[in-house]
C-alpha cells in the first residue's frame, strides 16, 4: 500500500517533495539528489510531467527508478499531451510497475513552453482524468465494447489519487467548485499551488472544511527577491507578500539561501495546524529540503 496514503490516513504532518526529470538522458544527478536529500525526509516525491510544457524525460520511468531506490513516487499526469487512450494505458503501466500515487493536472498551456507549435490535446481535463482512474479501479475503462457495454479489465489497478488547487487565487469560488468536482470524481488528497500568505490559506481551508480530503500546502522555495517578484507578476494564483520580498531583497547574496530556507520553514510552522502536510517544491534546490523541514520545527 502507498506509504503516502498510510501517512495521510494516520493524521500526522506529512511532507512530500518534488523532482523534475532532465531534458536529455542524463538521469543520474536527479536520482542522486533524490537519494541524498529527499529519501529520508519526505514520504513521497512527485515527478513532474513535462512541466510548463518544456519537453523533458517522461515522468513514468523516473517514478519507477525512484521506486527501485526505495523512494515512493507520485506520478504527475497532465492531460495536455495525451488523449484518453494514452492516459489510461499509462495508468495501467504505472500500476503494473507498482506506482500507486497519481496526481492529476490540466497542465500549462503549450504556448508557455518550448514547443509552441505543438498541438494541445486536453481530450480529458483533470476531472476527467480522476474519473478515468476511478473507472479503472472499478474494473472498467472509459470505453465501451462493440455491444455498447462497459469493458472488463483483466487485472484491476489501485491508485491513490491526488489533485491540485490554488488557494490564493483572486476568485476562489470557482476553484472550490472545481475542487468539489475533483473529489466527487475520486480525488483522495490535495497538493496546493504555492502559498505564501498563511491568513489567506486559513480562510481558504475554512471554506473547504466540508471537503474531506487531506490537503498538503504547497511550498515553493524563493531563490531571491527577483523570483518572488516574477511570480507575483506571472504565476497565476500566487501572491508573495511584500514583507517576504523585502526580506529576500535585504539579504546578503551569500545569505539568500539561508533566508529562503527560513522563510519556507516559517510558512510551514504557521500553517501546520491548518492542514495535513506540506508539499515542498525546491525547483532544483533539493539539498535545502532537509533544512526547510528542520526550520519548520515539525520533526
Amino acid at each position: 500500500m502507498s506509504r503516502l496514503r498510510e501517512a495521510l490516513g494516520k493524521g500526522g504532518f506529512t511532507f512530500t517533495g518534488e523532482i523534475g526529470p532532465p531534458k536529455g538522458t542524463n538521469i543520474a544527478p536527479v536520482l542522486h539528489e533524490a537519494e541524498e536529500f529527499l529519501k529520508d525526509c519526505v514520504v513521497a516525491v512527485n515527478v513532474t510531467d513535462i512541466q510548463t510544457a518544456v519537453m523533458r524525460m517522461s515522468s513514468l520511468p523516473v517514478c519507477k527508478m525512484l521506486l527501485d531506490r526505495g523512494i515512493e513516487p507520485v506520478l504527475q499526469m497532465v492531460t495536455r499531451d495525451r488523449n484518453r487512450l494514452a492516459l489510461q494505458s499509462d495508468l495501467l503501466g504505472a500500476a503494473a510497475l507498482g506506482i500507486e500515487n497519481v496526481l492529476a493536472l490540466t497542465g500549462d498551456h503549450i504556448v508557455m513552453g518550448d514547443h509552441q507549435g505543438a498541438k494541445g490535446v486536453w481530450d480529458l481535463d483533470s476531472v476527467g482524468l480522476l474519473d478515468a482512474m476511478t473507472k479503472l479501479e472499478s474494473g472498467t475503462d472509459l470505453g465501451l465494447t462493440m455491444k455498447g457495454e462497459p469493458n472488463a479489465l483483466d487485472g484491476v489497478p489501485t491508485f491513490f489519487k491526488g489533485c491540485v488547487v490554488a488557494p490564493c487565487t483572486e476568485e476562489v469560488e470557482p476553484q472550490i467548485i472545481k475542487l468539489e468536482k475533483k473529489v466527487a470524481a475520486g480525488a483522495q488528497f490535495v497538493q496546493t499551488q504555492a502559498v505564501y500568505d498563511p491568513r489567506a490559506f486559513e480562510a481558504f481551508m475554512k471554506r473547504i472544511a466540508h471537503v474531506k480530503v487531506p490537503v498538503l500546502v504547497g511550498i515553493v522555495l524563493l531563490k531571491n527577491a527577483g523570483m518572488a517578484k516574477y511570480m507575483n507578476k506571472n504565476v497565476p494564483g500566487v501572491r508573495v507578500p511584500k514583507r517576504i520580498v523585502d526580506r529576500l531583497a535585504a539579504a546578503d547574496k551569500k545569505d539568500v539561501r539561508k533566508v529562503s530556507v527560513e522563510v519556507a520553514g516559517e510558512l510551514i510552522r504557521e500553517m501546520k495546524g491548518m492542514c495535513a502536510g506540506a508539499h515542498i517544491m525546491p525547483l532544483g534546490w533539493d539539498k535545502e529540503i532537509p533544512r526547510v523541514i528542520e526550520a519548520s520545527g515539525v520533526k
Binding site: H109, G120, D125, P174, Q175, I177, Q193, P236, G237
Partner: peptide, 27 residues
C-alpha cells in the same frame, strides 16, 4: 484549453494564462 469542467487555475487578473489581453473563459 477547451476545458469542460471549470477553470484550470491559470486565471491571472481575470485573464487567461496564455494571453493577458484575453479574459479567462471559465471565469
Amino acid at each position: 484549453k477547451s476545458l469542460v469542467n471549470g477553470t484550470c487555475g491559470g486565471t491571472k487578473e481575470e485573464h487567461c494564462e496564455v494571453d493577458p489581453k484575453r479574459p479567462c473563459g471559465w471565469l
